[in-house]
């Protein structure tokens, strides 16, 4: 429970800072401050680990009400449908391929190190 208190406190801190005029979204500010607090040792990992993994693992659940809400805005979506769908698919493919191929070249040695580590563990 302490974990949830800490996480919600950082969310509120982020939202508060955003309201005071910091031009980044509140939850992003919360995320940055929370990660910094972990890195600086202000918060111990074991205080927040269980609560946050619970939230992260079941993030799919948190999207269900929003998805159901899409059924109420079919008219708006249809009006701009073609442009938005084209933009969605093109941008999705572009991000997948740019990130994937760049990571393929830049992160390759990390991958090999990992495979070697796993190979070492084999009998």
């Amino acid at each position: 429970m302490l974990g949830f208190v800490i996480i919600v406190a950082f969310e509120m801190l982020g939202v508060g800072l955003h309201r005071l005029g910091v031009p980044l979204p509140g939850s992003v500010l919360g995320l940055i401050l929370f990660t910094l607090a972990l890195l600086l040792g202000l918060i111990r990992l074991e205080w927040v680990e269980r609560s946050s993994l619970l939230l992260v693992r079941h993030m799919t659940l948190l999207f269900i009400p929003l998805m159901a809400g899409l059924a109420t805005m079919t008219a708006e979506l249809r009006k701009n449908g073609v442009a938005l769908l084209a933009s969605l698919v093109a941008s999705l493919l572009a991000v997948l391929l740019t990130t994937g191929s760049l990571a393929h070249f830049l992160l390759r040695d990390e991958e090999i190190a990992e495979i070697n580590r796993e190979a070492d563990l084999l009998p």
């Binding site: 949830f4 996480i7 919360g30 995320l31 929370f34 972990l38 939230l55 993030m59 929003l66």
Partner: peptide, 22 residues
């Protein structure tokens, strides 16, 4: 009732700090 889950998306974003840190 369902909106409760939507509200939790904010804290869930902050909670990403844990996998990010690890």
């Amino acid at each position: 009732g369902g909106g409760v889950f939507t509200t939790l998306l904010g804290p869930a974003t902050v909670a990403l700090g844990v996998p990010m840190y690890k």
